[in-house]
Amino acid sequence: MSHAKKWLQTMKISWVKNTAYRFNFFLQVIGPALIFFFVKYSLWKTIYKSSPEEMIQGYTFTAMITYHIWSFVVSMIGQGHSALDMAVDIRMGRISSYLIYPFNFWEFHTASFLSFQILQIIISIVTLGIFLATGILESLSFFHFFLGLSASIYVSLFWFVLQYLTGIIGFWLEETWIIRVSLQVITVFLSGAVFPLDLFPEVWRNILDYTPFPYLTYYPIKIFMGQEVPYLKFIYTLGAWLITVLTINTIVWRRGIRNYTAAGM
């Protein structure tokens, strides 16, 4: 079998796996994002209730809601892939089969990730359609949509390698989900998924500028909204982080696998 076929087959399998328990998939992946959006929508509606024309840090009510709609899309596409529990594979010794297969562990997970992404993009587009039809989202520019989509997919690559890192820490740590959840909590808060970073105090914003966080949600949302964004800076900063984490992953994997085979599991 050619190598591309192996990838395709893996993607198919994980597609089936993801959609097999439809109800669970909805509750685990789409549900949280929707509830998160719904709560934020309700909150901002209450805040703006007294004076709908008021501006908070440059955001009208409509702008705020538009921000949150794109935040939903970015969280679905950019940071949706969080179900990576490689630690269980490692601890249960299931990883051993990948040391024998002519198909690598990372290839298997990356193929699964790609298949998951396709599903997430479809769901996002359907949800956007609903937002548009119900008038919650007022307008959509296809040019900015594709620009934003590309940015989100770029973000998802970084998010994936980061998740992968937390997974292979499982060589040393029994419960890696704690790290993943912590990462999620920090990222949701610091990347501007809760509310625009413009609402953060000046000091925080200055510090955050040196971290990858604003690039994970805030900038992609701005791109979707058609606002001026330092595109080049976005590409190379995230790129640098991507390469850094990828390098760490390679090193961690090599050390881990040595540990693992030495322990003779």
């Binding site: 328990y21 669970n24 909805f26 509750l27 685990q28 549900g31 949280p32 509830i35 709560v39």
Partner: peptide
């Protein structure tokens, strides 16, 4: 598993 996520979403509310 899905029910546990439903439970978490209730908490969120």
């Amino acid at each position: 598993l899905g029910i546990n996520f439903l439970r978490l979403q209730m908490q969120e509310l």
